[in-house]
């Protein structure tokens, strides 16, 4: 078992309502609970779930429970499910040590001009101490459903080595969470995510 590099460890999952950030945060949270950590998760619920900007704040500690809000400028890891949302979170919660893993596939904001993806990526890299941008959605579509992008991102998070949960622990959580056939594809997606950050 790895130990926390920092206590509490502050992780933000940023995305667009409907992408499934609640599921990701729950799976990650469960992995820590299994290992006896205190976990607090704050979610965006309600109307923003309908295609608005959403984020999950995860606080992980050996010592005590923390509030469901990470203070501004205090994120340690940002897991971005969408580039613009990743940047939005970095701008408010990032700092000189923040590490970013993000899906590079954009989701248009209804009625808005989407900015140049290259510039967004450049800004994300500029605000991260270390960053991985991966096209998780395209890989997921290859697996049959864009929703697998979430599992690819979890795989990338575990595979990046910045995260105090190893693949075995995560696999146990996935086994608990997905019945039968679903488990298999989710495991494929998870492993794909691990590979993508190793490359």
């Amino acid at each position: 078992m790895k130990t926390l590099t920092k206590d509490p460890l502050n992780l933000i999952i940023a995305g667009v309502g409907g992408q499934g950030n609640v599921v990701i945060s729950l799976l990650i949270g469960k992995a820590f609970i299994r290992e006896g950590y205190f976990v607090t998760i704050g979610e965006t619920y309600g109307a923003s779930q309908r295609s608005g900007s959403v984020m999950s704040h995860l606080r992980i500690s050996r010592e005590t429970e923390y509030s469901p809000f990470i203070p501004s400028g205090r994120a340690d890891i940002i897991l971005g499910m969408e580039p613009v949302e990743t940047l939005r979170i970095l701008q408010q919660f990032g700092n000189s040590d923040v590490i970013t893993i993000a899906n590079s596939r954009l989701i248009h904001a209804a009625g808005m001009e989407y900015p140049s993806l290259d510039k967004i990526v450049e800004a994300i890299e500029g605000l991260s101490a270390k960053s991985w941008l991966i096209n998780a959605t395209d890989e997921a579509v290859k697996l049959g459903d864009p929703i697998f992008a979430n599992m690819i991102l979890i795989g990338a998070l575990v595979g990046s080595g910045i995260f105090p949960i190893d693949s075995k622990s995560m696999e146990l959580v996935l086994r608990e969470s997905f019945p039968g056939e679903k488990l298999e594809t989710n495991m494929v997606a998870f492993n794909k995510g691990m590979e993508l950050v190793v490359q």
């Binding site: 923003s48 940047l87 990032g94 904001a109 900015p115």
Partner: peptide, 23 residues
Amino acid sequence: PRDPEYSKKAEEVPITYMPPRIM
């Protein structure tokens, strides 16, 4: 909360890079 240098850099990201997502 964070290094002022970083804050400056973060605040310099153009607002157009982060279009709002309306309900």
